[in-house]
Amino acid sequence: MNEQSAVPRRGEEVVLSFGDSLLRQSDVELLRCCGWLNDRLIGFYFEYLERIGFKDYAAKVCFVTPDVTQFVKLHEGDDAELRIFLEPLALHTKDLVLLAVNDNQSNTHAGGAHWTLLTYWRPGNLFECYDSAGSVVPAPARLCSVKLTRFLGAATSPTFEVVDCPKQENSYDCGVYVLMFAERVCGVKLQGKTASLLSSITADCVTRLRIDTLALIQSLCVT
């Protein structure tokens, strides 16, 4: 669970500074077996996909950081404060928007036990939810889509669908599945790839991504 790893140890040295992402050793350790990924790791990987993995599509795609997603999901009141966070993202200009949604119900305390991927695809005016736990309609993702809709610039309200996708085999890999879903969705939507999520993502792929992400962080540390 992320409760045990959300707060860095006092005085802990930064392992990697990448764009707006800072990773400490306790964050990196979560990539080893059985670690529940926290918002800093997911934010880093989203930033990596945005800056390097899909940099040629920067005008078309937006990876919303987990902290902004959490704020959007739980925000109450008028739109003025939300607009401060969202206007710089220019969501109304993007074909594809991706958000990692946590089920934590607090804006002030770390918590939560599950991540889902929520995407908005402008050409279809469609929200799609990818949930490795197999929820029928994950409430946090649905709530986030409602809050986000008025900032997308769509002529009509988007539809919302839960996508049939691979299911995790344990209680801790949801964050890794979100990373894999995000990368595959970008490949399909932006690059025209045709690989099915059901056939291209397996438990072995998830284990491999943990290892590959550790290696990625190590490589960025020395560049």
Rank of each mutant, 00 (worst) to 15 (best):
R208H: 01
S199Y: 07
E3Y: 07
G134R: 12
A90D: 10
Y120V: 10
T149Y: 02
N170P: 10
S5V: 15
Q4L: 12
Y130I: 06
C144V: 15
C174R: 05
L117S: 02
T119V: 05
V176N: 13
Q168A: 06
V64D: 03
S145D: 11
K60G: 01
V101T: 07
V188T: 10
C205S: 07
L118D: 03
G187N: 05
W36P: 06
Q105L: 10
N38M: 10
V178E: 13
T223G: 08
W121G: 12
P140M: 11
E47S: 07
R184C: 11
V97L: 12
V14S: 13
C221S: 13
A215M: 03
K189A: 02
Q168T: 07
M180S: 10
Y45G: 07
L190K: 04
Y172P: 04
L99M: 15
L86G: 09
D78S: 14
E183T: 08
S132D: 05
L22C: 08
V64F: 08
G112W: 14
V185Q: 06
A215E: 05
I201H: 11
N102T: 13
P8C: 10
E161K: 15
A141Q: 02
L117C: 05
C205H: 10
D173S: 14
R150V: 04
A58L: 01
E29L: 12
L209W: 07
E3L: 15
R40M: 08
T213S: 05
Q4P: 00
V136L: 10
A59P: 00
T202K: 10
L179A: 03
P140Y: 00
P8N: 15
L198I: 12
I211E: 03
T108E: 13
R9F: 13
L16P: 15
C186F: 13
V28F: 03
G175L: 11
Y130A: 09
E29Q: 13
I201S: 08
Y48P: 03
P66A: 12
S17D: 03
I52R: 07
V15L: 15
V61L: 06
R122A: 12
L220F: 02
W36T: 08
N2K: 14
